[in-house]
Structures are given as structure tokens and as C-alpha cells.
Design a protein around this nucleic acid. Structure first.
Lengths: 339, 339
DNA sequence: ATTTTTAGGGAAAAGGTTTTCTCTTCAAAC
DNA sequence: GTTTGAAGAGAAAACCTTTTCCCTAAAAAT
């Protein structure tokens, strides 16, 4: 009977009238401000909850200059990286009564501009920019905005606050674990070299392994993992006993290729992935041991940081690298971590 | 130099002062209301854009009772279904100046309640509820809200508006295509029977095939696809030449299992999936022909509908089934559709 | 020359809330 | 009995915009 949704909203005037006080007294009672008798305060509060009063955030925001709203800008339509970040942001902020505007801008500067302006019009308290690559920035100008901006998993302006995962440490984690599993000939199979994180991981890998083996750059697909294994195993010479892959898709391709060749994972070769993309990692046979970038935690911290900036609290600027975490499943041997 | 983001916002007062008119004239000039000389109107507009005036949406919303904001409630943390829906909603609404609040409530009723209240406080013009199953409703009470609610890919209240895909039609599409490819013994390999869409697809499949073959119910995983193929091909008797799978993961498991048995896809057996989950469908070897539920379109329609309701336009209530679309890749034969 | 009309523009209220200031009243102190 | 103080509560301003109503002056009509 009320599908369209209409019913007069209850305002503080109604509360005041029902409690027999003025609106100022009602307001003060509800916000625990001002001076008044305990009985009055209690009565107002009781009446307010009885008639179901909830303050109008628009009116409040107009006055306080805080909308308790932030904007999340992303160009990751696929959501693979953005989704955990979003979840973290939202989770961190809901406790503080802050809501999140979702702005998917694809890679369209005009759309980005529109969204930024819409957010500013709506008086967001801050903006979080997030993307799918830490070495690319969003196609939109976020300088000189009247609100603070925090970058998460995307290239930020110098002199701002940005969060990213520590890819070098993640790579070390991977190599370390392979070594611990007794692997000595570890090959790194990764994505395109123009990705900053690819280079960073490759450098860390080379440093950790002493730079004995070459790094194989390719694309982020299963078929590249497949092809790389074919290339390695059909070439003459000693074969690796460990594969450190740049993402879970490559790892999955590699594992599948190894299985097809009758090479046992993890008995003969250990394979480790990167990203902990559940849908790929968990469905691989055997399930992939992989490096998790802790994107949800990254989102959480970005959320808390933009909040701090919005409230004028001091925040140290710069790039913050968050540590990765090893998720042990079965593709390397070793005891799986419980989840 | 402005990291925290602070700079006095420009109000219509500033415009009025700069243009040498009153605020009422300024407002009317900018909104093409009221009567005034063309020169005055132009001057005000020019000045406004020169000093970068943008109206405060909070103040405007307070007055107009419209916040140009809607809430998107979801319990699909994974984002597999929600993400395209969200993209569609946002895309449809950004043109109308409407922003979208993202509310991820997991499956927590308390969290849902908090989010709904926060949205109402922020005076959203409407709410879209979306989930991961069309036969489950969100764990939150959306009845008797002061704003319209539209359901997308989740069970809605009777007497409301909900959008879902036409699973029966999707199944027909699949069977039809397999028949067109010359397949005569088509087996349906699907998910748990307690899913409404599973039953609906299975019924449509049975009707289309004359109910010759049994339906194999299982779980939504690759390993089930794998196992089902093993079960079928190790049993005595004639083998199927077509597999209609309940989702792309099952299809992928089946394709992998067939390949391992030396059975050629699509030469010997055609396999068709459901969902068109790119990451699975496109990376399978060969890439999966599958049924797309057009979730983005679904989101778009949900967005436009909630907007219509918010504006008081009449909307026919009830469940609307949107047609699915066949995406032809290589797992069935036939010429791939361009994308 | 007087009245009527119209154009152009301003004053003020409204929307819901918070906050500062003011006012009244009653108790305590002198 | 007068002054001081504080407690309790209300009036009003402020936030920013839109809209209705009103006022003035010039043009048109009589």
C-alpha cells in the first residue's frame, strides 16, 4: 500500500511539540548538550524514540559542514582489486556513520569529472581514489579539491597520502616459502614488464635468489602460464623445481600445463601465485598457495585516513606500503593455513 | 599545499555580490526561472562560472525534498553478480545527477539495519536491493519505508517491483543452440536443487529436450563439473554429445575433464555454460559459449525504475523477467559472436 | 495627464538542525 | 530585604538554496 514510499517525515519540531518543550531544548536534550533537568532530557529522549524521530542528515550537514559521506572513485569495472578495497573502506567507515558514494568512471575522463563534481556538490567529506594498477593514476584531476583525497592501489599525487601493497616483501615471502620447501631452482613467471609491481617483484625475486634464473615476462593470463611451462620444459637443460608466478591466473595455467605433462604439483614442482584471487586460487587443482595483498586492510586504512583528514587530524603524508600475507594451500607443499 | 583540503566554498551569495544583484535574482538567473533582462541573466551566469560556483546539493535537497541520491543494498561481498548490477545502476543514474550509496551488509541483519537507517537519515530518494540469489531476500526489513524500494536479482516483497533474469528462457536458448549444433543427447549438469533458478532452468531444459535425460544436481564448482563428467563417462551406455551446465565454473570443470579424457570439445562434445563470467568463460580452453544474464541491463532498469518511483511517476509493479543472451565462443562450435 | 500594465528585480520565508545568546525564576549569600 | 548566582528553558541566528510575493519604474493605454 505504500510502494511509492510516502509518509511525512518526523522532525525535531514534532519531538518538541510532543514533549512540550522548545526545539532548542529538544535538540540539546538529544545531543546531550546544554543544561536542563534530567527529567526533561529523559522525557525528550523517550518521546523522540517513541515517535521514531531521526535527525535529517542534510540539515545537519548543512550546518556542520560535514556530510558524513565520502566518495570512492574507481576505474576498475571488473572489481577484482576494487571490490576488496571497497569492502574495507565501507567496513571501516560504517562504524563512524559515514556512507560511501560509489563512482565507477571506467577510463573516461569526462565521466570522472562529472562524478567528482557531483560528489563535491554533495559536500563529501573526502575522496578515496582507487584503481587497478599502482603505477597509473585515474584519468581525472584531483588536485586543488576542497576536500582531502587519499589514494589506494593507484598512483597518487606527490605530497598526498597513498596506500599500496609491499610487492617486494610479497615476492620475498614467496621465494622464502619456496626455499623453505626445499626448492632451489626457482623461476619467476610474471606479467608485462611495464607494470611497476612486476618490476618490483622481479627485483625482489632476483635479489632473493641471487639472480640465477631469468625472469619470464608475459601477460596476465592462464594461457601465458601454460605457454611458459611448455617453453621451459621443452627446452633442453635442467628444469626448475619451483615456479613463482606473478598472479594466480598465470599460476593456474602453469599448474594445468604441468599436470598435462604428468609433472606432479607439489611433489615435483612447487608453484606459488600472487593475488589470492579466491575464484582462481581455490579452484585450481591443487589449490594454489599464493600471496595476498591484503586489499581489504588497505581499504580500511584508506577509509580511516580520509576520515582523519576530514576531521582535521594530522596525517603523515607519503606512500605507505602494507605487508602482504602468505596463504598456504597445497600447490607448494607445507601445511595449509586455516582460513 | 592543500592536502587536507580547505578553501572557502563559494555560495550563491558570492555570485550575487560579484554580479551586483540579489541572491534571489542570482538563483533565478542560474535556474532559468523568473523574469529579468537577458543581459542580467547572462552576466550572472558568466560570473558564476568564472568564480566557480556550484550549488550546494545539501541545501537544495533540504528544500526540494530530493537528495538525488539512492542507496544500493547488497549482500554479495564477492561481487560476482552485484558488480554488473551496480555498474548498470550507476551508469543509468549518473546521467540524471543521482549518486549511489554503496551498502555492503554481508548477511548481517544488524549491519543491514544500520545501513538502511543511515540511508534514510541521508534522505535517499530510493533504495535498490540486490543480492546473489533471486530466491532469497536480504536479511533486513524493507517494508514501510518512506522511500521506494526496487529489487534486483533478489527476492522482493510481493506488491513491489523486482527485476530478475528469465532463467527459463536462458535455458531454452542454451538447448536450442546445442540442437542447432546437431546435438541430440544433451545432459544438464547444474547446481543445488534448492536454488529456484536451478529448478527453473532444469524444467525448461526438460521441456525443451522432451525430458529424455536426467538432470544432474551438484554444487557450483569446477570440481563438480569434473566429477560429473567422470561419473557419466565411466558409466556404461551411450555418452552425451552435449552438456548444458548450470554455470561457467561447472562448465569449465567439465571441459577440463573432457580434455583430460581425450574427448575433443567441441568436436566430440559441445559444452555450454551459464553466467558469462568472463574470467572463467574466456580463460577456458576452448573459451566457453555461455548464457549471459544481462545483469548490467538489469541494473540499469532497476535504476531507472527507482528514479521513476522517486519522482512519483506511475510504475507497474510485479516481477519483470529480463531475457538472457547467448554468447557464442568456441565450446559448442558455431561462429563466435563478436564482442 | 492619469491610469493600467508589464518588466525587472529584491525581500523574505521555508526547509531541519545546531548553537549562542538571552530571559526568567528561584535559591543562596550578604 | 536586596543582591548575586546559577539553573532551566526558549528565541533567534546560522547553514545555503529556491520560490513566492511584493515593490518600483517605465511603457502603454486611456
Amino acid at each position: 500500500m505504500n510502494i511509492g514510499g510516502s509518509r511525512k517525515r518526523i522532525t525535531i519540531h514534532d519531538v518538541a511539540a510532543a514533549a512540550g518543550v522548545s526545539i532548542s531544548t529538544a535538540s540539546k536534550a538529544l545531543n546531550n548538550n546544554g543544561r536542563m533537568g534530567d527529567d526533561t532530557r529523559e522525557r525528550v529522549k523517550r518521546v523522540a524514540s517513541e515517535i521514531g524521530f531521526r535527525p535529517n542528515a542534510l540539515a545537519r550537514g548543512l550546518l556542520s559542514k560535514r556530510s558524513f559521506t565520502i566518495g570512492l572513485l574507481t576505474n576498475d569495472t571488473y572489481g577484482r582489486f576494487t571490490l576488496p578495497v571497497m569492502a574495507g573502506v565501507a567496513e571501516a567507515l560504517v562504524d563512524h556513520g559515514v556512507s560511501v558514494f560509489l563512482c565507477a568512471i571506467e577510463d573516461d575522463p569526462a565521466l570522472g569529472q562529472i562524478h567528482v563534481e557531483a560528489m563535491l556538490d554533495k559536500q563529501v567529506d573526502g575522496i578515496i581514489a582507487t584503481g587497478k594498477r599502482i603505477d597509473r593514476s585515474l584519468p581525472v584531476d584531483l588536485s586543488n579539491l576542497p576536500v582531502p583525497v587519499v589514494y589506494a592501489f593507484t598512483e597518487g599525487r606527490p605530497d598526498s597520502v597513498s596506500f599500496r601493497s609491499d610487492d617486494a616483501q610479497g615476492a620475498e615471502l614467496a621465494v622464502e616459502w619456496l626455499s623453505r620447501m626445499g626448492r632451489r631452482r626457482i623461476v619467476h613467471l610474471t606479467g608485462p614488464q611495464d607494470f611497476f609491481s612486476v618490476r618490483e617483484r622481479a627485483d625482489a625475486y632476483s635479489k632473493a635468489t641471487g639472480g640465477m634464473e631469468p625472469v619470464l615476462y608475459g601477460v596476465w593470463s592462464e594461457s601465458w602460464g601454460h605457454e611458459a611451462v611448455a617453453r621451459i620444459w621443452s627446452a633442453p637443460g635442467e628444469k626448475p623445481d619451483g615456479l613463482f608466478c606473478g598472479n594466480d591466473q598465470i599460476a593456474r595455467g602453469a599448474v594445468d600445463a604441468l599436470r598435462e605433462r604428468g609433472i606432479k604439483v607439489p611433489q615435483d614442482v612447487s608453484v606459488i601465485g600472487f593475488d589470492n584471487w579466491e575464484i582462481v586460487a581455490a579452484q585450481t587443482r591443487p589449490p594454489l598457495t599464493t600471496v595476498d595483498m591484503e586489499l581489504k586492510e588497505l581499504g580500511r586504512q584508506a577509509g580511516l585516513t580520509v576520515l582523519a583528514l576530514a576531521e582535521g587530524r594530522p596525517v603523515e603524508r607519503g606512500v605507505r606500503k602494507l605487508p602482504c600475507r602468505l596463504v598456504v594451500r597445497q600447490s607448494c607443499g607445507g601445511k595449509p593455513s586455516e582460513e
